[in-house]
């Protein structure tokens, strides 16, 4: 396929239209020429990363101890046993959350708990947001009984959304706050979930736009500077948000503001955001009473 570079969502949508190919296919073929490799090798590398993530989920689900800070650990396991017993009968205590979404959240907790204890993970796009995309996509792939090749394709869709975000905005909490990490991850997941279920390129980026708009302005305020609170649970916020956004576009709802414009808005918000709220642990939850107590107990202070 002839190489056509894209730097923005609108360019990518246009290329998809002209070549009558999906977002995932264009990202794969462009990546193959950028990285001077074959599509087959790229897919194999993606598959091996999926395997590493699955291992981190399995390890994370076994964690039963709290971390040194006491802020995370053992919650993936709790969600797992709750899910196992909760979807069987109809009662007042029945979960309101769909089975797939709760599974996605469980996977995300497992990855983030594994991350917090210095375990091996795949940053996606960052370590602090590593639970969102795989949580959202793996649970959906399980329950929709998708083949590995479909899952791999959707990971390239997610990756393409992340590349465009990195190119036009930012991916580091230290420059953009949490919107740039968990917000981006949520946009990537929303687009990929939409692609997985046959959404058009425009719908994919509308879902990404709706997801990112919902988390615009999210600050990075980790307690004691640790990637635990609020990071672990915020990945679940991002997942729920991505499921919502994908569902909206498949229902025919459109984003008023397109993805490229949302990235411009994210840049603007990042510029206006105080440094205290950009991964410095000097604002927000980091300076809550609990936050201060944890930092003091661990001897982490500024």
């Amino acid at each position: 396929m002839e190489y056509t570079e894209f730097k923005s969502a609108s360019e990518l949508i246009k290329i998809c239209k002209e070549k009558r190919k999906g977002v995932g296919k264009i990202v794969i073929s462009n990546s193959a020429s950028d990285l001077d490799t074959t599509q087959k090798e790229l897919k194999a590398e993606m598959k091996s990363r999926i395997t590493i993530i699955r291992e981190s989920i399995q390890k994370g689900l076994k964690i039963s101890k709290r971390s040194k800070s006491g802020l995370s650990g053992g919650d993936a396991k709790k969600i797992d046993s709750y899910a196992k017993k909760s979807y069987t009968k109809v009662s007042k205590t029945n979960p309101l959350l769909g089975k797939t979404l709760l599974k996605a959240i469980k996977y995300s907790f497992a990855i983030m708990e594994q991350n917090a204890r210095f375990g091996r993970i795949v940053a996606l796009p960052t370590a602090g947001s590593a639970g969102t995309v795989p949580g959202a996509l793996f649970a959906a792939a399980d329950d929709l009984k998708l083949s590995d090749s479909k899952l791999i394709d959707s990971m390239f869709v997610a990756g393409g959304i992340g590349m465009i975000t990195g190119e036009n905005a930012m991916l580091a909490g230290a420059t953009g706050g949490c919107q740039a990490e968990v917000g981006t991850a949520s946009a990537m997941a929303a687009g990929a979930l939409t692609s997985m279920r046959g959404g058009s390129p425009k719908q994919i980026f509308d879902a990404a736009a709706i997801a990112l708009k919902g988390l615009l302005g999210l600050v990075c305020d980790p307690i004691a500077g640790l990637v635990e609170c609020p990071c672990v649970k915020r990945n679940s916020t991002a997942i729920s948000n991505s499921y919502m956004a994908s569902e909206l576009v498949l229902a025919g709802v459109e984003s008023n503001v397109n993805f490229d414009e949302v990235l411009v808005a994210m840049n603007n918000v990042a510029k206006l955001m105080a440094p205290e709220l950009k991964e410095t642990a000097r604002g927000g939850l980091a300076i809550s009473q609990t936050g201060k107590e944890v930092a003091e107990r661990l001897g982490i202070g500024n």
Binding site: S31, Q114, F118, I121, A123, L124, P125, V227
Partner: peptide, 18 residues
């Protein structure tokens, strides 16, 4: 494009922060 696919889906790393 300054970012490649495995900059986004990666790196494979030890936690907790990229």
């Amino acid at each position: 494009m300054n970012w490649s696919i495995f900059d986004i889906v990666g790196p494979v790393m030890i936690g907790p922060s990229s």
